[in-house]
Amino acid sequence: MQLYLPIAEIPVNIFVIFGMGGTVGFLSGLFGIGGGFLLTPLLIFSGIPPAVAVATVTTQIVASSTSGVIAYWRQKAIDLKLAFVLLCSGVIGSALGVWLFGILQRLGQLDLVISLSYVTFLGSIGGLMLVESIKAMMRRRSGDAPVARKPGQHSWVHGLPMKMRFRRSKLYVSVFPIFAIGSIIGFLGSVLGIGGGFMMVPALIYLLRVPTSIVIGTSLLQILVTMSAATIMHSYNTQTVDIVLALTLMIGGVIGAQLGARIGQKLRGEQLRLLLALLVLGVGLRFAVNLVLEPEDPYSVVVVDGENA
């Protein structure tokens, strides 16, 4: 069944889009990630204009993180103060991202920046996760206990000034690293159409040493607010949010996520991380191949201004 998208201005097969939302939703439920970094490339590779794909996925992420936030809220597993600092910086970061997005779109280099960023971030994060999960699996096989974090162990991050106390997370750290994490992820989120959960969670755990039980709920709340802001800013600035596409993705996504979450509970942590690492690397590689291989046709045409040329 074909459905005409009012903003993307092309018809799509509604079942294909629904299926994509469902598949990515399944993976996000399985791995506990937002899945924006998978959904945006899928949409781009299937012919949705990159600008529309990126902006619309920010809306889809709002939907997919909502039910998670509600669940963690009930369990009181959210550090509101930490989330507030993160999201303030996140909104600033994503405003910068939306602004840059508009400029790049006008310059004709948006696709390049999206591809390059995907290669860089997915490549490095996927690589790190792969190494980490293989190490964990080898430790498990040789029977060694994992190296536990020693209490009172501090990194350079904890030496920075302007400290703030976060009771819920039992933290006393400088606002600078929190601000940096929030704004960088907000920025990437609006430029790349990713929630950034897969970067936020390790950053909070390894850099700030936020307790694992608090991390996911807090990160989800931050993503929810930042992506809501990004949706509104994209709507206002570039007018590329396609509400019909977003709704189709959301419905597929929430159903897939439920299935994924149920299956995810049956798999072991390091196996999941290995699979996720391979997935992240695969997407990064797909972008790299596109950049490096000689294109079949080096020419492309873009309509710069449709209404009042």
Binding site: S67, I232, S235, L247
Partner: peptide, 24 residues
């Protein structure tokens, strides 16, 4: 989306929040 972009954005977010809440 062209004439009331701000309202359009807010509506998109409201729709997403509602869908997520309903799924929950």
């Amino acid at each position: 989306s062209r004439q009331q972009p701000l309202l359009y954005g807010i509506l998109a977010v409201a729709l997403a929040l509602f869908t997520g809440w309903l799924a929950g």
